[in-house]
Every structure is written in C-alpha cells, then in structure tokens.
Write a protein that binds this DNA or RNA. Structure first.
Lengths: 244, 244
DNA sequence: ACCTGAACACCGTTCAAGT
DNA sequence: ACCTGAACACCGTTCAAGT
C-alpha cells in the first residue's frame, strides 16, 4: 500500500500538495555506479549541508554540486526548493522514536517526554528550525508524531480539546525555546550565550529590570531552564484537566 | 542625549551592531520637495510593503522603487537588508503602548495584558513574524517592552528568575500561536482555517487520534483558543511562584 | 561631498537541446 | 524517453563614475 492511501483522495495538503509522492525509497531501480539520486539521498544530503553551513548558505546549486549533478535534476524529484526543505524538516521530525509514548504512566509524563525528545532533536539541528516554522509539519513523520502523542494523551483520559492544545503548546514551547537559545543567530556560534551578557551590559539606570533579571538568568544551565519552563506549562495544563 | 548612551560603550549587540544609529528621525534636514528618504520613512514603507505583499516578495528593489530611488541609496541609511528587517520588527513591537502595565493589580494581569497586546499586534502584521524570529528583538522598542513588563512583574514581588522566564514564555507562546494560525502560509490566505479541515480529512483508520481531536478543535474561535492557552501558561507559572 | 546607475556574483526555476 | 547545460529573470550588494 502506498502512503497516499492514508489520505482521502483530493484533500489539499497545506504546504506542498504531492507530499507523499517523493518520499524516500519511492523510486524504482537506483542507477548502479555512482551514488544514485533517489529522493532519500537528496534529502539526507540537504540536511547535512544545512547542519554544516546553515540554511542561509544552502542553495540548490550547492546541493546539486554535492550530489555531483545539476540543479535541473533536482526538479525531477521535487517540485521546488520549499518541497525539499519540507522533506528535510520531516526527516528531522522522524529522528526521535515516539512509538513508546503510550507505555508511560501519566499524560504528564507523555508531554514531558515529548518535550524532551523534541528539544534534543532541535538542538541537533538548530539550522532547520526556521524551515520547521515556515509551515505546519504535515509530512509522514510529523503526522505520526502528532498521532502517537495524541493517542497517548487520549488514552490517559485527557479530553480531546485539551489534548490537542497541550500538544501544540508543548511543541511551540520547545521550538520557541530552542530558536532563541540555539537559533539562526548561530551564524555567529559564540552569540548564543552572549544574550544574557548583552542584557547585563545595558545601562542599569535606563533598564533596571532587564539588568537585574539578567544577573539571575546567566547562572542557570540551559537544560535546566528548558526543564523548568516545561514543568510550568504542564502544571498549567494540569489545572485545566478533569478530577484534580 | 542620544539613545546610544543607554548602552555601555562597545557592547556587541546581537544582530546589527549599529542598531541605534539609523533610528527614525535621526537624520538632519529632510530634503524638501518629494518625500524624503529618512530612515523612518524607509522602515514605514518597508513595513507597508511586507504587510501588503508578504516577506517572500519583499526585495530591496521593490522597496527602492516604491521610494522612488535606487537600491544603492538604501545602503546609505542601513548596513544591509537584515538591518532594515530588524528595524521593521522594532517598529511593529513599538505599536502597543506598554507603559501602563505597572498600573495593573497583579502580575498575572500584567502577563495576560502583555500576551493580548502582543497577540493583537502580531495579528495585524503576520508577515513580519518570520523576521521577528530570525533574531531576538533588541531594538529600542523591543528593549522598552521587555523593561516595562519585567519592571511590573518585579513590582508585584515576582522573583527575578521567574519574571524573566515568564516574559520569555508568554512571548514564545504568542509568537508560536500567531505563526501557526496566521503565519506565512498566509501566502495562500485561505489556508489558515483549513488546517483543522486537513486533519479532519485524514483517514480515521490510520490517524484515529488526530481526526478525533480535529473535530473538537474547529468549533473553538481562535481568540478563545489563544485566551485558554495563555491562562494555562500563567496558571503554571503561578504554581511556581512564592506564597501560593 | 554626496549620490546612484550599472555592474557583480549569486539565486530559484525553466526548457530547448542533447543523448 | 530521459536528462541536463545553459539561459532567464531575478536577488543582495558594491563601486566607479557622475553631479
């Protein structure tokens, strides 16, 4: 069965319409000899280049060069650059295995685990985050992730509306946190920890509150900071859940 | 006094180093006759073009055309395109007046009001959100906003660490929410409300949890949805605050 | 001294010409 | 039939030449 049978006929997919067509391994016999140009290999190479040089410096020209082909060849596998980026995003989202989420004891643990795994993956691929935010991830792995988490939450008795909102909230939190801490300012890789320093170096007369809070902030390790905020968020959801 | 006196001498500003130099109105006598090219006018026009046509279609060429000049002229006022975008972001952040935040009764109200005003502003300028996320907003208005909110929170006795994290969390939430609901998929302006429809049209056999929760989601108005999530978040912060 | 037309080195995308 | 070199219409940025 093809993956497209998972959707009702002509449903318009936000983002690219032919999401599933160019999925890795969908092509026929790979050419023998030099590394073949199946979509999976293209996407894998694209991710590596983005990780190494950043999205800003990622062009179809450099991708084609790395693959030993011309740019026109890429268009035989993907509709355009955005579609390639969308597949890169989906490949990243597929890295953590979320199939074990429903073995956890509580929906709180489910959300905590989802948050941590998402955080780990985004830390590994910070340069991909802007593409992640350019559209809602509706590729196969993005959908599978959403399905696994929602299924676990519903299984623990969380109301459907709350489950959906909790998933979104945790996702936003992890993305927003990672973006500001390891985000595309990572073009200058030393810039990330300097933000607190920048705040602390402002004029205390003009910005007393900013400078004061900056002093406290720098002493907390990033992982702990992420942990704390996630706990906060889940506590808040808990207060809106039934029988508490 | 110039705005730059608010910072200690050579502090490296994340993003562009000469943030304050090109602030609106800083230039001398505007040329008489046709609309002058002071930085404020350039930024205002850039924001209008981005609002009208989206960031994707915003180029220095179109901006220069709209201003009746050449692209090279823009480089006499700003270092590069990113600096122009950073100023556009700061202009947007300056739209809500946050000076009255310390008149509110509780820190919870402070955060709620901040969230709502940020949400309103982002809804008015959804095309600017990607630029907002490209770097931490450290322009004059971004700093003033942070200072006002933190001052109000500290004034209500919130610990400094919690205040800083709460500010960040609410900011992330508003940005993340607005992005997904009114974000750059707004290239297709009908796409935003279709996300829930997309989820609902998936195969219920393959995605039972997604389709089930999608049914619930569509009935809730967006403003209410935003409200609920914000309440959730603030409740969570409340549980980590002292004497509760 | 100040401004900017015209060029430079790219970019995503297309298609006619090759095999 | 399949592939792709070379072109097209852009882009951000620079600078020599104008005033």
């Amino acid at each position: 069965m093809t993956a497209s049978s998972d959707m009702r006929d002509d449903a318009l997919v936000p983002g690219s319409p032919a999401w599933w067509a160019a999925r890795p391994g969908a092509h026929g016999t790979p050419r023998r000899g030099r590394p073949s140009l199946d979509p999976g290999h293209i996407v894998k190479t694209a991710l590596r280049l983005i990780d190494e040089r950043g999205v800003q410096d990622f062009s179809l020209r450099t991708l084609a060069d790395e693959l030993g082909s011309g740019t026109a060849t890429l268009y035989r596998h993907f509709a355009n650059k955005d579609e390639i980026l969308a597949h890169v995003v989906d490949r990243v989202l597929g890295e953590p295995d979320l199939g074990d989420l429903d073995t956890l004891g509580t929906w709180q643990e489910t959300l905590t685990t989802m948050g941590h795994r998402l955080y780990e993956v985004l830390r590994r691929h910070p340069a991909v985050i802007p593409s992640l935010m350019a559209q809602i991830p509706v590729g196969p792995n993005g959908l599978a992730q959403r399905e696994h988490v929602l299924r676990a939450l519903l299984g623990h008795g969380l109301p459907a509306g709350l489950a959906a909102r909790a998933f979104t909230a945790v996702g936003h939190y992890a993305i927003g946190f990672t973006l500001q801490q390891h985000g595309p300012a990572a073009a200058d890789p030393a810039a990330a920890p300097q933000l607190a320093t920048f705040y602390r170096n402002l004029n205390p007369g003009s910005f007393p509150a900013i400078t004061h809070t900056a002093d406290v902030l720098t002493s907390v390790p990033l992982d702990e900071e992420f942990h704390f905020g996630l706990d906060c968020l889940i506590s808040g959801i808990e207060r809106h859940a039934p029988h508490d």
